[in-house]
Amino acid sequence: MVRTSPKALALGSQLRSARDAQNIGVRALAKRIGIDHSTLSRAESGERPPSPELVSTILVELGVSGAELQRIIELSTDTSGTAWLAVSLPEQRAQLAALLDFEQIAKSIVSWSPLLVPGLLQVSSYTRAIMSGGVVPENEIETRVAVRMGRRDVLTRPQPVQMTALLGEGALRQKIGTPEVMLLQLEHLAKMAELPNVDLRIIPFDAGWHPGLDGNFLMLSIDGSTEVVHLENRSSGLFLRDDKDVAVYREAAQMVLRVAMTAEQTAALLADEADRIKKE
């Protein structure tokens, strides 16, 4: 079974990127620093996080130095922690790398998004419209759009992740980009909702109070052995791994699902919204 942590995955991703940048294979690097190649492989996968001393040895051998060296060594401390708060931009980027890795190995994902379509269900023009709002530097937009589109593969690959996507009605009515963009997005949601591994539900405005009103969250489960929650806002990201913390969000997801529309009602609302845009 997979037993890892977000920080361990992020550290592994950083080590793998540094090695790839030097075009060195796992076996070759392991031989150069005098360790077994399986040890290095497990370090890069996040299965067995290396000590700060080993991280330093690996990075120095790869020519990493200065602030970058210190940043990754700091990432190697407390990799088994139950919570990981990322505030600085470099650490937020490391957290995003861990999130991408978790999406790839997750067996199930529960997403609650009250105001925006979640990334795994976005079309490129919708993503581009969000990123063009001034937050993302213009020269990075297309690269980031491509990365987000690549993430969607987890829903359509041969052994896809099981996704429960809970969307607030506001996510359908919030205008992102042009009417054409919104129409494409609504049609894509309707198409994805037909997949056997995607349970898409809309929570209507008149649902009353539910814990989802506290904000969006993402819960990822891996082989029943690891379950994490990811929370994000404008200035920070937070991974929760403690069983009690995760249980709070698991219960919240169940409560949100209880006030959600049925799959049939959701499909009807998506069709109605698409028709409304066509008539405008």
Rank of each mutant, 00 (worst) to 15 (best):
E74C: 10
M149P: 15
L29Q: 02
Q122N: 03
L186I: 04
S225F: 13
R3C: 02
S45E: 11
L240V: 00
R48E: 08
E251S: 15
V110Y: 05
A268P: 07
R151L: 06
K191T: 12
N139C: 13
E103K: 09
P196K: 02
G119D: 05
V136T: 14
D214F: 13
I58K: 00
L40Y: 07
I73S: 00
M1H: 13
E47V: 14
L167W: 02
T226H: 01
G212F: 03
L155F: 06
D223S: 11
L96W: 03
E91H: 14
T164N: 03
S113L: 08
S108H: 03
F239A: 04
P50V: 06
L220P: 09
E61F: 10
L270W: 12
P160T: 06
P52T: 03
P118D: 06
G34N: 08
T77S: 12
V123H: 04
D275R: 15
Q265D: 14
E61N: 07
A94V: 04
V55T: 13
A146V: 02
R93G: 14
L240G: 03
A274N: 12
L96P: 01
Q265L: 09
P52D: 01
H210N: 10
R3A: 09
A30H: 05
I72R: 01
L220M: 14
P52F: 04
P49V: 00
N216K: 14
S235G: 13
D199Y: 07
V117L: 12
L115D: 13
K191W: 08
H188I: 08
S76R: 04
K244Q: 14
A267S: 15
I73Y: 01
Q174N: 11
R157H: 01
D214Q: 15
I109S: 05
S51M: 04
A271H: 11
A83G: 09
V147I: 11
G208P: 03
L116F: 14
P118G: 06
V228S: 05
S13H: 12
I35E: 10
Q22V: 03
V87F: 01
Q22T: 06
G134Q: 01
I176G: 02
R148Q: 07
A171H: 05
L220R: 08
Q104P: 08
D243L: 12
E227H: 09
